[in-house]
Amino acid sequence: MNVASKPALGQATLDDRRLAKVSARDVDVFYGAKQALKSVSIDIRPNEVTALIGPSGCGKSTFLRCLNRMNDLIESCRVVGSIWLDGEDIYTSGLDPVQLRARVGMVFQKPNPFPKTIYDNVAYGPRIHGLSRSRAELDEIVMTSLEKAGLIDEVKDRLQEQGTGLSGGQQQRLCIARAIAVSPEVILMDEPCSALDPIATAKVEELIDELRQRYTIVIVTHSMQQAARVSQRTGFFHLGELVECGETEQIFTNPRHKLTQGYITGRFG
């Protein structure tokens, strides 16, 4: 903490952090006495997919959960440093995490649809945030969200069936539709395909690429191929530090750090 870590290699940060969609500076995270993140600084650029890779326990998920303050829910967790969303510090006491999470949506590792109907799953967010004034408007939101999530053709005749009855891949796309329905600006994805089969994974990856048009996406992934396929920029975490960050192509073809190279060539991980 008192020792300022050296900044990550590559272009992790912009010169003017206000240009970034999400900007983190010197973020430390502690679980009780244990430090999980050490001085992470990174800028996430708008309308790009940023992939965070690294071996298990390297802190990439922890960092992701800082971006919508999901770490607040863990009693012993403490976050130091600053994280900005559109130039606004999200860790000031005045900021409402509830409002923040409406702007920064999240998709989890395991598909976790609510034990409700498909319709109610997607309508959940708009309902709690009061995004619609009428039933018709809500229908509209649900349908467009399902459409954007590429699920509409598969479920349009069974909106009143349980969301838990869908296949794994469909469930995950339902969760994405659920996140989209709140019209977030940023979508965080925590290993969204790790529980899916290859075909479902391909569909979700395709979807992520489409979503890039409208949303800023941060994705944590175990699979380097996936990072290479879907992301424009990649950050490599190791032991709680952001080692290197840059254009995905550059990271995978010409890593600057020995650790990065070791990881992407499969020498550890």
């Binding site: 606004e88 409402d96 509830v98 409002q99 709690i128 945030h129 009061g130």
Partner: peptide, 15 residues
């Protein structure tokens, strides 16, 4: 950033 309707709604939700 937050319009008044949303702010009111948020206040109600927090209450």
């Amino acid at each position: 950033m937050i319009d008044e309707r949303t702010a009111r709604r948020l206040a109600r939700r927090h209450a």
